[in-house]
Computed example of a mutant assay.
Amino acid sequence: MLGTQSQNLASMAAGHRPVPPDELVKDPASGHWTGYFPGVVDGTKWGFFVTGRGGVQA
């Protein structure tokens, strides 16, 4: 996303807020955001918290 400054993987549990261990890392060469999250398997419900120029969007 243009202007994205950070992204966090987010549990879909009510009230979840982003924390540093959930932060994705941007690859400067490809621009892709990546991360590894133990325990996340097929069927796990998740989303993103995206921080950019307009603030945070969940």
Results as ranks from 00 to 15, higher is better:
36 Y>C: 04
56 V>Q: 14
17 R>G: 08
22 D>R: 00
40 V>K: 06
38 P>K: 05
12 M>N: 14
3 G>R: 12
34 T>S: 13
36 Y>Q: 11
7 Q>N: 10
57 Q>L: 11
16 H>R: 13
51 T>R: 04
55 G>H: 06
21 P>V: 06
28 P>S: 00
20 P>C: 02
52 G>I: 01
57 Q>D: 08
36 Y>S: 10
52 G>K: 02
36 Y>M: 01
19 V>W: 05
23 E>R: 05
9 L>F: 12
29 A>N: 05
51 T>E: 07
15 G>T: 02
21 P>A: 08
13 A>E: 13
8 N>T: 10
30 S>N: 03
56 V>G: 08
26 K>R: 11
2 L>N: 13
17 R>W: 08
30 S>V: 08
33 W>F: 05
48 F>W: 11
45 K>M: 10
16 H>V: 11
8 N>Y: 15
5 Q>H: 12
58 A>R: 15
22 D>I: 07
8 N>D: 12
57 Q>I: 12
53 R>F: 08
42 D>V: 15
22 D>Q: 11
41 V>Q: 15
44 T>H: 09
41 V>A: 15
8 N>Q: 09
50 V>N: 02
36 Y>R: 09
18 P>Q: 10
16 H>Q: 12
23 E>N: 05
39 G>N: 11
36 Y>K: 10
44 T>G: 09
11 S>Y: 10
46 W>T: 03
16 H>T: 15
52 G>W: 07
15 G>F: 04
23 E>C: 00
37 F>S: 01
23 E>I: 05
13 A>I: 10
15 G>H: 10
25 V>W: 02
47 G>S: 09
53 R>W: 09
32 H>L: 02
38 P>N: 00
52 G>F: 02
31 G>S: 03
3 G>S: 12
18 P>W: 09
49 F>H: 11
44 T>W: 06
48 F>K: 02
36 Y>F: 08
37 F>R: 00
57 Q>P: 01
31 G>T: 03
50 V>P: 02
6 S>D: 14
33 W>V: 09
55 G>E: 05
54 G>D: 07
10 A>E: 10
2 L>Q: 13
12 M>S: 15
44 T>E: 01
14 A>G: 12
54 G>H: 00
18 P>G: 07
10 A>G: 14
1 M>L: 13
39 G>E: 09
49 F>M: 09
49 F>N: 06
30 S>W: 06
28 P>N: 03
27 D>S: 02
33 W>R: 04
19 V>Y: 08
4 T>P: 07
55 G>Y: 04
1 M>I: 10
32 H>N: 05
5 Q>K: 14
58 A>T: 15
30 S>D: 05
27 D>A: 05
5 Q>F: 02
53 R>E: 11
49 F>V: 01
34 T>M: 10
39 G>D: 08
17 R>A: 11
42 D>R: 15
2 L>Y: 13
19 V>A: 11
21 P>D: 08
34 T>D: 01
42 D>G: 15
58 A>S: 15
12 M>E: 13
44 T>A: 12
55 G>S: 05
29 A>H: 03
50 V>Q: 07
9 L>Q: 12
8 N>H: 15
31 G>H: 02
21 P>M: 06
31 G>L: 08
18 P>F: 04
46 W>N: 03
49 F>P: 02
25 V>A: 01
47 G>D: 03
23 E>G: 03
45 K>N: 09
24 L>D: 04
